[in-house]
Design a binder for these strands. Structure first.
Lengths: 266, 266
DNA sequence: CATGAACTGGGTACACCGTACCCGATTATG
DNA sequence: CATAATCGGGTACGGTGTACCCAGTTCATG
């Protein structure tokens, strides 16, 4: 019952976009490493680890679009189809890349635990943003069905530990994590999109705005957008840090709830 | 100088993923409709509008992956390459789809303006979530270089009008919008990913968790995740509305800042 | 009114992609 | 030593975006 795998396939046709999650059972086995080598055939010349490492490297360097089975195979010096001896399909490979990279931030902070839930939230947000900046392709992987691997669990555990002091109900703690992560992801996506646009078009942001300027000018003069026309010069300046602003507001919002609860507990 | 278009290409090779923004100047012209028909050749049998409409319809029904030039051409009863007479490339088409769909929510609320900035934020968040739920593929389009079309501008104008009463500086108002939209997008992405996973694998969420259960069980019993192991039963229940929770917290956070400013203005 | 420039429609072809299928080489077991 | 099981990977198929080119249509001009 352990190894049929290849024959399944089910209703996975007509994909094309970047989504994880193909054969879940297989993904889980790979993630949690139920890896007993069969004792009959020749020894494998590759390892799952090497494949995932290569895939992450390519994705980091050239984007997820550059991660193709052919590309990986040349990178690893093997035939393309050999990869399918180790991974059931590209979807599962994406799952593995996901969990691989989620494990990174926890190696960084081995030191003291956060003093405060506020600091915990702050660290969580910055850590997540960091991860997403290092690996922007994470934002293109379907994370809904991304199997909860060891790294994902460790991250959750750490986050929950830091948030315990808030004195909220368990589902609310999850709510805090979801809110912060959603905010960070949304923001990271904007940044990643911008970077990708620069890389792909070879056009800087300034040049882009210059292109756009005459059209905006005309729109402003049309009188259809009075609010926007009257905005201060520095409104869209890159001076303003949207991450800091939003994070501060979120923490303030949590704080209000925490205080409420404390007050009602007297 | 107006129409070379086809020859350009620049550094746009090796794409594959879903990104907008190819030839910006062309996109802008198409968006703002600098559409004077040349007076020499035969009349076009198609319109940009019909193409965009068809593309949106296909994307809504079957996802962005189903939107291919060949598919659109059969949908419209023309040859594939004919589409390139109207759109320079797929990137520009995505830009147009984006702006088309952003225009929708403002047709809904022709009535009274929001009474409060709180209500304005609330409406903004719900409106955006609605749009993203109706067109989940929006989350896969590169919005960084998505040209500011008429619809996008109208949305911004409306949002800013509602937020004026907060008494914050202009860049901060943008910060509010960015925070709310980032949060909503992040959350919508999670939901969209889940829906896509169900559609693609034909596996319900429950079935998915059932698959995962034994592995989680083992992890919990390992003692490596004490916090998670001790969580309440209902912690991951779908009863809890993460959107409402996060939005409330964000508004509370904004409120704190608004009050601060009011107090210091005495 | 004839002509040719300017335009539209679209067929063919190419370089990619994921992967199903299959066969020969390798290896431990009976 | 024979055999079952596994690994490596070549070939092929159906999909993608789009460059290139030619035929047909239409209108301004000579």
């Amino acid at each position: 019952m352990t190894n049929d795998g290849t024959t399944a396939g089910a209703a996975s046709k007509a994909d094309g976009s970047a989504t994880g999650s193909g054969d879940i059972a297989r993904s889980l086995e790979l993630l949690w490493g139920t890896g007993e080598r069969p004792s009959r055939g020749p020894k494998p010349g590759l390892t799952l680890d090497r494949i995932v490492t290569a895939a992450v490297a390519v994705a980091d360097a050239e984007g997820l679009a550059a991660v193709s089975m052919r590309r990986l195979s040349t990178e690893l010096g093997t035939g393309t189809m050999s990869l399918y001896r180790y991974v059931p399909g590209k979807s599962e490979l994406l799952d593995l890349m996901f969990d691989r990279v989620l494990g990174e931030p926890f190696a960084d902070h081995p030191g003291e635990p956060p003093a405060d839930w506020r600091e915990a939230v702050d660290r969580m947000a910055r850590g997540h943003l960091d991860t997403l900046r290092r690996h922007p392709w994470l934002l293109k992987i379907n994370q809904a069905r991304t199997v909860l691997g060891p790294s994902a669990l460790r991250g959750l555990e750490l986050a929950l530990t830091g948030l315990r002091g808030m004195g909220l109900r368990d589902p609310e703690l999850i709510g805090v994590i979801v809110a912060v992560n959603s905010f960070v992801e949304g923001l990271a996506r904007t940044q990643a999109d911008a970077a990708e646009a620069v890389a792909q078009t070879g056009l800087s942001d300034e040049a882009f705005w210059d292109h756009q300027h005459p059209f905006l000018e005309r729109a402003m003069l049309s009188g259809a957008y009075p609010m926007m026309a009257g905005m201060a010069e520095d409104t869209f300046s890159s001076e303003f840090d949207h991450f800091e602003f939003g994070l501060e507001r979120l923490i303030a919002g949590f704080d209000a709830l925490v205080r409420e609860r404390e007050a009602s507990r007297t």
